[in-house]
Nucleic acid binder design. Structure first.
Lengths: 146, 146
DNA sequence: GTATGTTGTAACTTTTTTGATTACAACTGC
DNA sequence: GCAGTTGTAATCAAAAAAGTTACAACATAC
């Protein structure tokens, strides 16, 4: 299966908050309009980003803001914040290989560190991408369109 | 979401075929017993591995064998063969960002090549792992247990 | 202190995907 | 023809994601 769109939506959310700060109050309704999903989906993601210390959301009056320096927010941070894969394991291992079979007994041992290497490769690349990069590029694109 | 256990099951299947060749006829029922899943699941995976030119399955009399040199079967080959992610895209992008919003209009452009870099990093690491490695390690573990 | 607009969250539904299961036609070799 | 097996379709159940409705908690303005 694919990695949940929660990741791309969360990045979209952060890009919006940064782009429109000062201009509009960035509420979950406003964000829902840009992303084109239900506002509850937005609020659920904002709540996870808040728990991760990336954004702050003000109750009552409304509006979200980013509270961590953009170059200190990596794609990996967001990926972890929105919990795209259960228990941090990218690969789903079949649960009950037959322990009486010599292969079934050892398949976990053989595969675990290999799968971990693959996951690490992916996460390392995610670490290299920051919201500062993404927002700089977004702003530059927007600038060239106006 | 996690990547389907089809990958780890397929690897388990290949390890079994190689380990037991000559000793037993490796049927889908035999494999189902080692992996501990329904034999139809095994047959479906074998059929994909066959389509990818990795194994051959003999109808009627039964039994599967590996027809590609083990060091030419990478984890990426298997991953692709069993189609763990739809249309080869690891990340699911939210479908309809609002084109009237400057961020919604550009988010795809900004993210696509970054997501691709991450996917490439993962696939490159998968390319480095071959069935030859996995089977050598499995056999060595089995040997030390007897 | 009430009205307004918003967040946080629970509950329920729909959709999608996986994997389990049953069933059976097609095939091979004895 | 018989036994054992593969290939595949059809159906089902379980899990997860996302959509939706609903509403209490909250902050601010008046």
């Amino acid at each position: 299966m694919q990695i949940s769109s929660r990741l791309t939506i969360a990045i979209h959310i952060l890009a919006c908050i940064e782009t429109f700060k000062g201009e509009h109050k960035v509420t979950s309704d406003f964000l829902a309009g840009s992303v084109n999903v239900n506002s509850v989906v937005i609020r659920r993601l904002l709540s996870r980003l808040k728990a991760a210390g990336i954004v702050d959301v003000t109750r009552g009056t409304g509006g979200a803001e980013i509270i961590r320096p953009l170059d200190k927010i990596t794609m990996l941070d967001i990926y972890h914040a929105v919990d795209c894969v259960e228990s941090g394991e990218l690969f789903h291992f079949h649960e009950n290989p037959n322990q009486k079979c010599p292969v079934g007994r050892n398949i976990h041992t053989v595969l675990d560190d290999k799968l971990d290497r693959v996951q690490q490769a992916m996460e390392n690349e995610m670490k290299r991408i920051t919201m500062a990069d993404l927002i700089a590029e977004t702003k530059s694109l927007i600038h060239n369109q106006t």
